[in-house]
């Protein structure tokens, strides 16, 4: 259930790491509150995530019209 509250389980200790996708795209890393492991988005995946988020925002705008 990692989508509803925007968090993913830490690969090391399984503690939930809260994140924000827009900040991930800006290169921000998010730390595990338990083991301090830091997760971030790989550079190679950024364009794909960026494009998907733009399409998602577009969808939200179209629905609001």
């Amino acid at each position: 259930m990692i989508n509803l509250d925007q968090s993913i389980p830490c690969p090391v200790c399984q503690t939930k790491i809260p994140f924000d996708t827009k900040q991930l795209l800006m290169g921000v890393q998010f730390s595990c509150p338990n083991c301090q492991a830091a997760i971030g988005l790989s550079d190679q995946s950024k364009p794909l995530v960026q494009e998907t988020m733009e399409k998602f925002e577009e969808l939200k705008k179209n629905v609001a019209k």
Partner: peptide, 11 residues
């Protein structure tokens, strides 16, 4: 599902 890559840094 389309998969994306994430990196993790740990001491």
């Amino acid at each position: 599902p389309v998969m994306i890559e994430m990196s993790m840094v740990r001491g």
